[in-house]
Write a protein that binds this DNA or RNA. Sequence first.
DNA 1: TTGTTTACTTGACCACCTCAAGCATCAAGG
DNA 2: CCTTGATGCTTGAGGTGGTCAAGTAAACAA
Lengths: 146, 146
Amino acid sequence: MSATTSPTPTKLQLMELLAAIGTAQWRDFAAAAAHHGLTSTQAKVLAQLNGPLPMRALATLLVCDASNVTGIIDRLEARSLVRREPDPSDRRVKNVVATDEGRDVIRRVREEMQATSGALDTLDADESATLHELLARLRPGMEKSA
Amino acid sequence: MSATTSPTPTKLQLMELLAAIGTAQWRDFAAAAAHHGLTSTQAKVLAQLNGPLPMRALATLLVCDASNVTGIIDRLEARSLVRREPDPSDRRVKNVVATDEGRDVIRRVREEMQATSGALDTLDADESATLHELLARLRPGMEKSA
DNA sequence: TTGTTTACTTGACCACCTCAAGCATCAAGG
DNA sequence: CCTTGATGCTTGAGGTGGTCAAGTAAACAA
């Protein structure tokens, strides 16, 4: 143990700290999205669209009902941030694709998360690596049970 | 640098990892809340009520409009999880207090966050302390600008 | 007293979310 | 072929969460 190590925190303390940071990052994201006239949900969807994605896949990613996605994509499409394209191999599915404008907007939203970005700048390379390592170990266990 | 330290992650990688973990914990929380018939917002409000809290203070904590809180408390009060009490020193303010049942429910919700809890169990005392230390340093910077 | 600020509620309006129902398409078996 | 059953998406109803504008009541200050 290094000289600066704190006493072992309780699990509850860690959970609260994680929650606080998660909330702060989410607010940072929502604020950046709002700055471009997007709700956080719309921005989140846009962030998933690296390639064409069927509506169903989107619903699975968002862990929500498929009918919900219809409305969200409707509103994004009305702003030309996204397009619905017919799937060539299955006429039931519609692939959602981000337009150039959509890609541009979500790129800017990411760049404008200054609170999160600034906070991470206070870590040096070593600390970043350590944090990344610990969080990467936490991730799989947290994503399991739904 | 210890022998197991990974190459320095990019800031983008860290942001995505933080977002993934934040989302996972939020879903865990929402699922536990739903198990008791609560929405995540209702559970979040209940979690803040350690003591009597004026409506206005709640709105500030939640970073939302005061009129929004009215509806949330209405629904919680309809289930007897919360009570509105007149403030003795200022007749304008209504203090929100969790009922015994409300305290009980939120206690159970916290206990049932098994995905998060289980994931944290995989860290030993040293790792927990390190994680806590790093996150605690991140927190103030992330909560600043709104 | 008069005027200003503060706390809360109401009503209108939109986004998000779920469920149930419906339509079109695919895929398998007679 | 054609029926039967899944699957993908949309629609409509209904509730929650969120904002804004306006209104009421109480506190406060000149």
